[in-house]
């Protein structure tokens, strides 16, 4: 099943690329891609994303259910783990920060190996963590770097950041580290969906689609920058025109850019309907963002349902003789 799913996902992405490429060369379609699609995608993204987040937020958190991953706060002489088992709001924020910025949970993937000698060696099984972290951070950097197309003048911090990214000054134009990193990370994430039998078995079409789409996005970006260079001035003109709601794209901009742009739009519009919503969801996870303080502070369940209970009086009524025989005190003789 999996190869079929991957194949279809791949073809879908190729189809998007082909439509964009040939659309860019068709007079009737070109304005559609440049002038309408970005707005449509942005609207779908914003509306869909907010809808989902609001719908999550709408569902209450009836119980305080953090997964505790360290020592609780109890006795003063026992050192509590403030981040993996926070007892305060600050601690919970810290835990979330570790989770969102460093992927703390994925980092736990240790592996024990028995080696010769009297001890176990813990080797790190951290490739997934590393690839995920590399991918997400690179993506963030690249997104920020792209701001320079939308801002005039380009702020200093952005220039500084780009310079940092291109620190190694390899090739001309300078190679951005993040371009290489994100490509390799995506390749790894894709490859393990093929190689790792477990992950292969459970992967859905959507899993491959997201990866192929992102790969397509990265590859077209890299190609535009390093080989089939597009006229960046014209692209910037276009980007700025988008921001002032009067989109205009020069005829000089090559179709490859349209493919890149369409990938971005498809990705944006796809996010609210897909697992990529984890981008918003991670912040709302009740097993991570709550402090383990349910014995310190009462947590309120807004729908706390009334239930039928078996009261002491009913119990005593039912077992009166036996309670008496056992010599236990009775409320009613």
């Amino acid at each position: 099943m999996s190869p079929l799913r991957a194949g279809i996902a791949f073809l879908l992405v190729v189809l998007v690329a082909a439509l964009a490429y040939f659309g860019a060369e068709t007079a009737a379609v070109r304005p559609l891609l440049a002038d309408i699609l970005p707005y449509a995608a942005l609207v779908i993204f914003l509306a869909g994303f907010s809808f989902k987040v609001i719908r999550w937020a709408w569902s209450p958190v009836p119980f305080r259910i953090p997964t505790t991953c360290g020592q609780q706060k109890s006795l003063p002489w026992i050192k509590a783990n403030r981040l993996d088992n926070p007892s305060t709001k600050t601690g919970a924020w810290g835990r979330m920060a570790l989770e969102v910025l460093c992927f703390r949970s994925l980092f736990r993937n240790t592996r024990a190996e028995l080696r010769e000698g009297p001890r176990i060696a813990y080797s790190e099984d951290k490739f997934l963590w590393l690839a995920a972290l590399a991918f997400h951070w690179s993506l963030l950097f690249i997104l920020l770097r792209h701001l320079r197309f939308f801002l005039l003048p380009v702020p200093h911090w952005l220039l500084g950041m780009s310079a940092l990214d291109g620190f190694f000054q390899v090739g001309a134009p300078g190679l951005y580290i993040t371009d290489g990193v994100i490509f390799l990370a995506l390749l790894y994430l894709l490859a393990r969906r093929f190689w790792d039998a477990q992950v292969r078995y459970l992967s859905l079409l959507a899993d491959y689609f997201a990866l192929f789409l992102l790969l397509g996005l990265v590859l077209t970006g890299i190609q535009m920058r390093y080989s089939d260079r597009v006229d960046l001035e014209r692209v910037k003109e276009f980007a700025l025109s988008l921001t002032v709601l009067s989109p205009h794209i020069s005829a000089a901009v090559a179709p490859l850019f349209f493919v890149h742009l369409t990938f971005v739009c498809v990705l944006l519009a796809y996010i609210p309907f897909s697992k990529l919503m984890h981008l918003g969801g991670v912040f709302l996870s009740p097993t991570r963002n709550l402090a383990n303080n349910s014995r310190i502070q009462r947590h309120i369940n807004p729908w706390n349902p009334p239930v039928k209970v078996h009261t002491y009086a009913e119990w005593e009524d039912e077992f009166r003789e036996k309670i008496r025989a056992a010599g236990l005190p009775l409320e009613k003789e």
Partner: peptide
């Protein structure tokens, strides 16, 4: 089960 060759992958005796 289900023909998925999982067992040979992980070397960790505890995993």
């Amino acid at each position: 089960l289900q023909g998925q060759p999982f067992l040979e992958q992980k070397k960790d005796p505890f995993r």
